[in-house]
Amino acid sequence: MFLPHNNLRVGGFVLGLALFGLSCDGGLAPANNDSPAILSGTIMYSGTWPDVSEVQDLRFVALRFVPEDTADFLQLNRLEASNSLRYGVQSDTFVIRNIEPGLFPFNGVARRKTADLLSWSPLGLYLANDGIIELDAGDSIHVEMMVDLDNPPDFP
């Protein structure tokens, strides 16, 4: 006869075993412990600014990928963006802090052309070092770039 109290012991053993097995894995954890990097830069503008109505927002963006078209560009999770830059100036600076280290193969100044949050396109690309910015843990890198407002880069 399998008495209830024996069954309880077995149940307790099984539960204990399950708890032990489950406790081996704590679930989600921070992705990595690398020190964040800092990217700063100076932007020099030349040429004629587009009408202010066509520059709803202006930022330096560093992409972790090379976009194929506008839709592909809109992977906001895979880019770092500065605060809004100033319109109509000859030069400006930016600082982006707390960047997860990595390789950024496509970088530049982008504008939002309309009120639509996603109507972004590049106004000028960072071309030094083949356009690549590489940030290692704890790096603080300063870049300089020119933006020819009369000749924005082609973009699909």
Partner: peptide
């Protein structure tokens, strides 16, 4: 809906 082809959402 939009006429601007760059509008995504």
């Amino acid at each position: 809906a939009g006429s601007d082809s760059s509008v995504f959402g």
